[in-house]
């Protein structure tokens, strides 16, 4: 189902890192839409450009190294790429906020967790110190941490609790968009379940839109409404979660499923994707997946396939899409 209005509309975004070793093309013509209240999973392997996409939306690319070379980023109708840094500052942490993978490095070790939540509230909501302190305690309670622990430092909390603190900070200003970058990857599976449940509850309570960045297809299946699969800096397939998991089309998406061991009905053998992802310093001119693809044709080497809609809301970037549809058993 599609929401009437997109909160975030990323169009043809390209980002590169200019380093002394060469230019890394991290994001290459990426399109991504997130509706109001919608949760979108951004999946892909290391180096696919997931985190770069997130950092670009927040305008947090490393200065003098990371450059946006094309595209637009519209948030609620405003072009984020044209905002001054002061204007961006008032959006970041307020209307768009982010939860990072490792709460031990994203929290400040020398401030108490209460102070860190307070800081955001004083900056964006212009609350007095006393008001902010009270609200910080409440936010901790919201994420399931007793408010009396506001005076403790990050190292006094377990990994799962620290990630709850990061979520409290991110949600304290009631943002319209939350970007969570591998929020549970550093956590054990039983703790991951707690944190994901908490995020789902808070998301529906505050009707926040969510971009959930992860390499774990299971996490996406259980926590997102839509999925975008990234490969070499671009979206190769996008669909509602039901379509993507029941009828994956792109050879890369299918390759991911073939690579996964099945917990419930074990396979005798896995079907890995041959080879490795392309070097972002020397991307192929054609389809970035062509070198590893099992159904490639000569034209795949010559040009890059655009994202094409094959059924309502299901897009695939592959020249052999008709072949894929026939094989998928769909009319």
């Amino acid at each position: 189902m599609h929401m009437s209005k997109d909160l975030l509309d990323v169009c043809d975004l390209s980002v590169e890192y200019r380093t002394s070793d060469g230019t890394v093309k991290a994001v290459n013509g990426l399109d991504l839409r997130v509706g109001t209240g919608e949760s979108v999973g951004l999946v892909g392997e290391t180096g696919a450009g997931k985190t770069t996409t997130a950092l670009t939306i927040l305008r947090l690319l490393p200065p003098r190294v990371g450059f946006v070379t094309s595209g637009s980023l519209k948030f609620d109708g405003r072009e984020l790429l044209e905002l001054s840094s002061n204007e961006m500052q008032s959006i970041r942490g307020n209307q768009i906020s982010m939860v990072f993978q490792n709460p031990m490095t994203s929290l400040n070790p020398v401030f108490t967790v209460g102070q860190q939540i307070q800081g955001v509230l004083m900056q964006h909501r212009h609350l007095s110190r006393e008001e902010a302190k009270k609200k910080a305690g409440e936010m901790l309670e919201v994420v399931g941490i007793p408010g009396r622990r506001a005076g403790e430092y990050p190292h006094q909390f377990s990994g799962g609790m620290r990630q709850r603190v990061s979520i409290a900070i991110a949600l304290s200003c009631n943002p319209r968009l939350l970007i969570a970058d591998e929020p549970t990857t550093a956590l054990d599976v039983t703790i991951q379940a707690q944190v994901l449940e908490l995020m789902a509850e808070l998301k529906s309570e505050f009707s926040t839109s969510l971009i959930l960045i992860t390499h774990d297809l299971g996490v996406v299946a259980e926590n997102c409404e839509r999925v975008a699969v990234m490969y070499a800096g671009t979206i190769v397939e996008g669909a509602d979660v039901k379509d993507l998991f029941e009828m994956p089309l792109h050879p890369y998406t299918r390759g991911l499923f073939g690579s996964l061991p099945d917990l419930e009905s074990p396979k005798s053998r896995l079907t890995p994707i041959p080879g490795s992802p392309p070097d972002p310093m020397g991307l192929p001119r054609g389809c970035p997946f062509e070198p590893r693809c099992v159904i490639k044709e000569p034209r795949c080497k010559a040009a890059r396939p655009p994202l094409m809609e094959v059924s309502p809301g299901h897009t695939v970037a592959c020249f052999r899409v008709n072949h894929l549809l026939n094989r998928g058993g769909v009319a």
Binding site: Q194, D216, G218, A221, E222, V241, L263
Partner: peptide, 15 residues
């Protein structure tokens, strides 16, 4: 607790 990579909206979680 293991997230299963399948579309299963009715999966119940005991956390």
């Amino acid at each position: 607790a293991v997230p299963v990579p399948k579309y299963r909206p009715d999966r119940k979680k005991v956390i």
